[in-house]
Design a protein around this nucleic acid. Structure first.
Lengths: 260, 260
DNA sequence: AAAAACAACATTATATTTGTTATTTTGTTA
DNA sequence: TAACAAAATAACAAATATAATGTTGTTTTT
């Protein structure tokens, strides 16, 4: 097992348990404590966890859990599956709009599979990954950089989006409750709204365990989207609400795609 | 001598001679021809030169010479010296505007020395290097990405700049002739002009050997700038013209700074 | 006082760089 | 255009550099 794999495994344990024990990790991976110390130091420097005496923690509910560097490590399989599904909705030649977030970044990195494309985004990770791709006309919205969301936001971003139109817009969100979509940050909400308004077709990308949650600001109604892409069946209540409203839910699974 | 140093040295030879000979390089660095082959392959992949039978060339006047990856390798000492001088014009708390180009990128990377700052730029290299800096409010203009200039340009960029103001704007340019400043690309010229208009103070950064040259599009008059920063005395004709017009020329030298 | 964290060094493992040799390609010219 | 020589490439082996890990001894924390 290589160092990077071990660090990823520690991340997984942190995600599921919220904390890890140093002695336990050393035993589990059959390496010395010193090595685990160094792993944890790295992860701490990267800003994805905090070292405490005898181990480490992600301090659920604090800055760490909402940091993009942490979120980028989570649920990679689910994100890849959703990206796979989203790609089927994209045809070469289209103008694609794509928002902030690590889900969007996963999709963004795979957009070259459908080139040529025009890609509009405020997502710094996507700008970086598409810069050197040929056949991609890359348009940045501009705005004030947010280290927390690794993207560009604010009045400038919204103004730029007002003047643009896309064939398809992909919006990701951390919370869906009933028939409403939520996000914790007002500035981010405004950028996402502007993108929804600018897309001829709009698709929502949500991890299945984000159904039944809310956040401070309402982002949109589910009915504003042409389809919702998720990675597995959400809880029963959400499913019922969606069915009754006659909305389309698309499931992306690692071994293929099925749809209702 | 390490590989990277040798490649830089090959770049220097390419800049001064326009071409290099494979056998000569192998002898000069006392390595095998195979090693030189690999160096040249790397440089070619990076897009900074072209391999030809028996050696390599930069094909002066072609795409290669104007490619940002190539330019970024050139005159690093001069660029650092000019950046040093430019930094003396920046006070903590200011809003700094800074344009595309490798000279600007060199300065951009050192802006944290004057934090806190607000930095407005369309330069992708600067966005990347300042993203993770605290105390820097980073604003991207947005626009269409240009791989050739490694920045964002176009109507969006110009519109965004129209709505912004900065305490100081740093403009770089590849050609100054008489009392006029030039650039080969119209779109780039428009972005630079918008920045000049948006800066309370504006400074021009030019390598001394770029005096006495022209390019297709006029960018500005020298008199529009509060000062011109360069790395050494330009040719006599340019110097005379500048003196007669009573403009300020600031010399940045590696061992310190002197000014006229 | 005991446990954990840290620092410094030694050791091992991995990755990178380089050279050698054999093979293929390219350009030249008879 | 056939044949040759030079150059380029590919494949492997050797050397070098870098990264990862463990050990030991010291310092810090509880």
């Amino acid at each position: 097992m290589k160092r990077e794999d071990r660090k990823q495994a520690i991340m997984d344990l942190l995600v599921s348990n919220g904390a890890v024990d140093l002695d336990d990790l050393a035993q589990r991976f059959t390496v010395s404590k010193m090595t685990i110390h160094r792993d944890l130091d790295d992860l701490e420097t990267a800003g994805v966890m905090r070292k405490i005496r005898g181990g480490g923690t992600i301090d659920a509910g604090t800055q760490f859990e909402s940091d993009f560097r942490f979120r980028a490590q989570q649920d990679r399989d689910a994100k890849n599956a959703m990206a796979e599904t989203a790609l089927t909705l994209i045809e070469p030649g289209m103008t694609v709009m794509i928002n902030d977030g690590s889900m969007a970044a996963t999709l963004g990195a795979r957009l070259p599979e459908r080139r040529p494309l025009t890609v509009i985004t405020n997502n710094a990770a996507i700008l970086e990954s598409l810069k050197n791709e040929t056949g991609i006309t890359l348009i940045a919205t501009g705005g004030v950089y947010s280290a927390k969301f690794n993207g560009y936001f604010g009045m400038m971003t919204e103004a730029a989006l007002t003047a643009l139109r896309a064939d398809v817009a992909f919006i990701s969100a951390p919370a869906v409750s009933g028939l409403e979509v939520f996000h914790m940050n007002e500035t981010v909400v405004r950028a996402k709204r502007a993108m929804i308004a600018a897309g001829a077709k709009t698709y929502l990308l949500v991890h299945h365990n984000r159904f039944g949650r809310t956040a401070l600001h309402k982002l949109a109604d589910l009915s504003e989207f042409d389809a919702v892409i998720t990675d597995a069946k959400p809880d029963a209540d959400s499913l019922t609400a969606i069915d009754q409203a006659n909305l389309k839910l698309t499931f992306a699974v690692t071994q293929g795609i099925k749809s209702t």
